[in-house]
Structure formats: C-alpha cells, structure tokens
Design a protein around this nucleic acid. Structure first.
Lengths: 116, 116
DNA sequence: CTCAAAACTTACAATTTTGTATGTTGTCGG
DNA sequence: CCGACAACATACAAAATTGTAAGTTTTGAG
C-alpha cells in the first residue's frame, strides 16, 4: 500500500536516519496503536477481545494495525496449530520495553491536556 | 483543512478522551515536528535557520508544522513589532517539558532500530 | 533606488491513512 | 449437519497529510 519511491517515503527514510525519536514515533503512530498496546498489556490477547477493548475501531483497521505492530516487532502473534483460525497476541520484549515510555506520554497528556 | 464532523475526526476526539498517551502523541506527530522541536532547542530560532536545520523540509510544510506547534502551545512565536516580517520561535514551558520524553524516544530508537 | 533574500501564502496534485460494506473460511455448540 | 461466530480479506470511498510550484510582502545590503 505504500509507494517505495515517492518523495514522501524517501523523506520519511531520510528523517529516520537522522532523527531517532522520529523513528520510534513512527512505530507507534497509527490511530489505534497505543490503545491496542495497552489493551494487550491489560490482558486482551485475542482479536475479539481487542475489538471490544478498543472502542470504535473496525475489524479491518484493527487487523491492519496488528499487522503493523507485528512487523515492527512490538507484538508477537502466536498461531495455535490445532485450531486453524485462532491466534493470540502478546507484547514482545521490544514492545514491553516501550510501555514505560508510553506511560510517560500518558502522564504528560493528563498534566497538559487543554481544558478547551 | 480538517473536517470537524467526520468519522475520522470524531474517532480521534473519542480516542484522546480515553487514551492520554494518544493525545500527547497527536501533538508531536507530523513528519518534521520532532526535528523542528530539537532544532529550536539547539538554537535555530528563525524560519530560515530552521529551513536549513531540518533537511528536506519545504517552506510550506515548515510553516504548517510551526503553526501546528504554536497552536498546541509547544512553541511560542515572537513577532518583532519593529520589523514587520521577522519572528523568532522558542520552546514554551510545555514544549520544554516534553523534550526529556522526546530524548527517551530517541534513546529507545537508537537501541532498537532494526539493522535491516 | 534596486535587487536579492527572508518569511511566508495560495493553488494544486500526489500520497497515505482511515473508514464502509461485504465476503470468506474455519470452528463450535446443539 | 447447521447456523452462529471468530478472525480475518477484499474492493472501494472518504479524509488527511505531504509535496510542488509559484506568487506576495517586507527589509536590508549595496
């Protein structure tokens, strides 16, 4: 779905090469990703659980974001070989190591959210 | 440029109400914002300085992101009343308080960037 | 005074993300 | 065996972001 050669994606690459924070940010930016990560951490390990843990997300978007997170290696998908269609999602070590940072983002948000 | 009533923006609002980290993230997501913030911190206080401090950014996008950051109150724009067209950009208190978090994002990025 | 540069603005196009609707495939309870 | 449900996939549309090109004011140097 992404063009490998467009000014847009080339700029993104270049940015990630000199701005490490922007690289990290890119892994977690995506409408529902933070909510998904915290939901998984809170025990929602299955697709249907995540669907209700993350209000308003649609199945398509949820599947996409899960795939992204998996590609970024923040989560791991375990397929149960017995049951063809049944997987569980868990945070990877990488994902876990990111959670304290996300927690700090949340704290900052609470303290600085505008009242408007 | 944003539709006030679209599923997209309504979802964003709802998300920010229950996920504080996502709120914070939304203030700094935007292709060049992190690079702009760190450049300002490093002394690039003028438009033209930022233009060269942030490689590849175009004037239009730079102006947009600066406006966004100003609206989010992460930076402050000081207009020199003597000179009509001359402003300086500084980090606000809010912006400054976010910098340590951005630094941690960068550290995580360095440690976890894939070698691929 | 004149010309170049700074600091934008405007109109437009390409790219990317998000959402809607519907279809598919396997599994499980009864 | 059968319909319901979980866990996706596909085709499409809407919205949002990013980039391109060019124009507009000041202003400062010469």
């Amino acid at each position: 779905m992404r063009k490998p050669s467009s000014t847009n994606s080339e700029n993104e690459q270049a940015l990630h090469n000199y701005c490490d924070a922007a690289y990290t940010l890119s892994l977690i930016s995506g409408r529902w990703k933070l909510s998904i990560l915290t939901s998984i951490q809170n025990g929602a390990h299955r697709f249907s659980l995540l669907k209700s843990a993350v209000p308003l997300v649609t199945e398509r978007i949820l599947a996409m974001q899960l795939l992204d997170l998996e590609k970024s290696e923040l989560i791991v998908k375990f397929k149960n070989p017995d049951h063809g269609r049944s997987a569980t999602y868990r945070l990877s070590g990488k994902g876990l190591s990111l959670m304290p940072l996300i927690e700090r983002l949340a704290i900052w948000g609470i303290e600085n959210k505008k009242d408007s």
